[in-house]
Amino acid sequence: MRIGDAIAPAARVALVGLAKNTGKTVALGAILAELEARGETIGVTSIGRDGEATDAIDDAIAKPPIHLPPMALVATTDRLLERSAARTEVALPTDHRTPLGRVVIARLLERGTVEVAGPVAAQDVGDVVETMRRLGAERVLVDGSIDRRAGASPRLADGVVMSTGAVLSADLDQLVRRTRAAAELMTLPAVEDAALRARAAELRTSALLLEDGEAVPLETAIVHDRVEAIVPLLRGRADVQALVVRGALCEPLLEQVARARRGRATLAIADDATRVFLGRGTCARHRARGVVLAVLHAIPLLAVTTNPVAPLRHRFDAAELRERIARELPGVPVLDVLADAPVPA
């Protein structure tokens, strides 16, 4: 399978990397090349920055340029557009402000390279995506940045392409484990019970949902800061159906839930996977301790790309890496876009 086929079902595609330099930009380049060949009108925005010449932390790491086809729409900033070599026209200026200038939506008048840099806030990204659709983009790509996942929110995108690479670890087993854990987190399942899902979706604040239909609201402080205060609320209660967190659901809270519930299965529900923050733990570890994670809106994982090279550090065998990851993620296309479909220079 080629990456163009993998993303076919999604009109809005988010690209997410598991770290800096996992090959996200190369994946973006491969997608652009395939969509160009299919003659699609493309829109591209980035929650970070793409197509810059060198890495923002380590300028010894050269970054691939982003080649865009004629008529493609791109979100960039006024200052970046000024120094771009491609012939473009401003399709629409916006009010979104970034450290690199004000965001504009530009249209390419010829094939060329432009640094992509859209709005910073996810809500604003949503506006830009809708604007691009209105301006004629058949498919919009939302590129992520470093290890940020916000762009994958179901509000912004219909599916996600996840990039993993050697930079995650010099130990292949470790790299595979981390990738599997990240994929598992990204694809947290939607709550199955429709009635429960409806009740959870109605809540305006975080709460414990009880069997009898009642909801015990939780203060923000308990969810984020004084997490141990949830223990007395949970201890000894047999009638807790689910813990619902509106906003960020973080690991320290899950730890306390496990402590309070002593192995009794507990369902913890977040809006979507981009709102769940696990530190050291994995979904599997929390499950083993009795805490099962679920979401109101699931995120389709369209594909995973693998990059065997950690810039200036180490590399793995490309085929072996892809094989190992593919074995861990049945049903998900796992691609090494450089090996599968060389990006035209």
Partner: peptide, 16 residues
């Protein structure tokens, strides 16, 4: 099996 050091797994278990 979840990479938790056994002294922690043991003490967490007793704490629970």
């Amino acid at each position: 099996p979840h990479d938790v050091p056994l002294p922690n797994a043991l003490v967490d278990h007793v704490a629970e």
